[in-house]
Amino acid sequence: MRLIIGIGNRHRGDDAIGCILAELLSTRLKEQDNPDYRIITHDGEPASLMAQWAGYDEVILLDAVHSGRQPGTLIKLDLVNEHLSQAFLHCSTHAFGITEAVELSRAMDTLPDKLVFYGIEAQTFDPDARLSQAVSQQLEQLLADIVEDLRDNHYENKGAVPMHEFSLMADLLRKIERIAQDAGGREKIVLTAIHVKLGALSHISAEHFREHFETAIKGTVAEGARLDVEELTDPNDPNAQEIILDSIEVRDRDDC
């Protein structure tokens, strides 16, 4: 028996997506005569979350994330081999609970043999808001993608960005998104180039960064922009451990 937990707050817009998908999965899997799952919804409280997955070999978590990607994008992470960062859960009301539950279980050596996190890129976490139209439109595709993974028992995210790099990319993409919004947003401008500097102690090569960046920007405002990367060499620089967004270039969409 495997456990699926939909985590969320039903009264904060897209923060409800984990619960909604869990309920839809319950119906869909019953229709497909697949009884090998227990499916529940949860508020993310850490002690209760750990109690729920105790004794299960395979656990799947569903929750909303905010990383700067296109709303409705599905992100899959293997939490047995990666640490769940709060960097892209920071808008959620239960981000700390999920992270704490996973890391406490890891420290106590009680993690399930398989612990997979499906994150759904959210657009709004506003109180008393409904599911955004952007996420609602992706519901059927999200459901189909997850059902296919469950059917194939295949949880690896091919081409996924490892958690450390993913956190860095999420922060970088949020900065790019803010600058793009200040310049007029997707409706008015197109990003043509992004200039990044890698600190001497950032522990990521230009080639490695470029590879993960190309994966991370799919579906975002940065997709299609040229990437220029400069590797800094001074380990005494105050930003030696950072990935620095130096500048971006834009042009009016009407000129394209």
Rank of each mutant, 00 (worst) to 15 (best):
R130L: 06
L143R: 06
L143Y: 09
D152Y: 14
D128N: 07
V147S: 11
P127K: 10
Y155H: 12
S132Q: 00
A144P: 08
V135R: 00
Q141R: 05
L142I: 03
E156Q: 15
D145R: 08
R151S: 13
S136R: 01
L143P: 03
V135P: 01
S136K: 03
S136Y: 04
D126C: 09
Q137L: 07
L150I: 12
E148W: 13
P127Y: 09
D152C: 14
P127N: 04
D152Q: 15
A144K: 06
L150Y: 12
L142P: 04
E148S: 14
P127G: 07
D149F: 11
V135E: 01
R130E: 02
R151A: 15
E140Y: 04
Q138T: 03
A129H: 06
I146D: 00
D126A: 11
F125Q: 00
D126F: 11
A129D: 01
L131E: 00
S132N: 01
R130T: 02
A144I: 10
E148I: 13
N157G: 15
L139Q: 03
F125R: 00
D149W: 12
L131V: 01
L142R: 01
S136M: 05
S132P: 04
L131N: 00
E148P: 06
Q141G: 01
Q138C: 05
T124W: 10
A144R: 06
Q141E: 01
L143Q: 10
A144W: 12
H154T: 14
S136H: 05
Q137M: 04
Y155I: 07
Q138V: 02
D149Q: 13
V147M: 13
L150D: 10
A144F: 12
I146Y: 07
L150R: 10
R130C: 06
T124N: 08
D126R: 08
E140K: 00
N153E: 12
E148V: 14
E148R: 13
H154G: 14
Q133P: 03
D152H: 14
D128M: 11
T124V: 11
H154A: 15
A134D: 00
L142G: 04
L139H: 03
D152I: 14
L150C: 09
Q133K: 12
R130P: 01
L150A: 08
V147F: 11
Q138K: 11
E140M: 03
R130N: 03
R130M: 08
E140P: 00
R130D: 03
N153M: 13
Q141I: 05
D145Y: 12
D152V: 13
E140F: 07
Q141S: 07
Q137W: 04
V147E: 07
R130Q: 06
N157E: 15
A129M: 02
T124M: 09
R151N: 13
P127T: 02
D149N: 13
R130G: 07
E156K: 15
L150G: 10
D145Q: 07
R130I: 04
I146R: 02
Q137D: 06
I146M: 07
S132F: 02
E156W: 15
D149L: 13
Q141V: 06
S132G: 02
N157L: 15
E140N: 05
Q137A: 08
T124I: 12
N157V: 13
L142N: 05
A129I: 01
S132A: 02
F125M: 04
